[in-house]
Amino acid sequence: MHILHLDSAITGDASVSRQLTADIVARLKDANPGATVTYRDLNEGVPAIDTDWFVGVRVGTENPTPEQKAHLDASNAYLKEVQDADVLVIGLPIYNFTLTAQLKNWLDQIARAGVSFRYTAEGPEGLLTGKRAYIAYAAAGTPIGSEIDFASDYIRHMLGFLGITDVTFVPADGLAMDREAGMARARAALEKIAA
Rank of each mutant, 00 (worst) to 15 (best):
H2Y: 10
I3E: 03
I3V: 13
L4W: 08
S8F: 05
T21N: 11
A22V: 03
A22Y: 05
V25T: 12
G34Q: 15
T36D: 10
G45T: 01
A48T: 09
F54I: 00
G56I: 01
E62G: 14
A70G: 02
A70S: 09
A70Y: 02
L72H: 07
A77S: 15
Q83T: 11
D86L: 11
V87H: 03
G91F: 02
I94H: 03
N96H: 12
A101M: 11
L103V: 08
W106H: 10
Q109D: 10
R112Q: 14
R112I: 14
A121Y: 08
A121V: 09
G123W: 10
G123Y: 10
G123I: 10
P124W: 05
P124D: 05
E125S: 09
G126Q: 04
G126F: 03
G130V: 02
A133K: 01
A136T: 01
Y137I: 02
A138K: 04
I144E: 09
D149K: 07
A151H: 12
I155V: 13
G160Y: 06
G160L: 06
G163C: 06
D166S: 10
F169R: 08
A172P: 06
D173H: 14
A176V: 00
D178H: 08
E180G: 00
G182V: 06
M183T: 06
M183F: 07
A188H: 10
L190V: 00
K192G: 02
K192P: 01
I193L: 04
A194D: 02
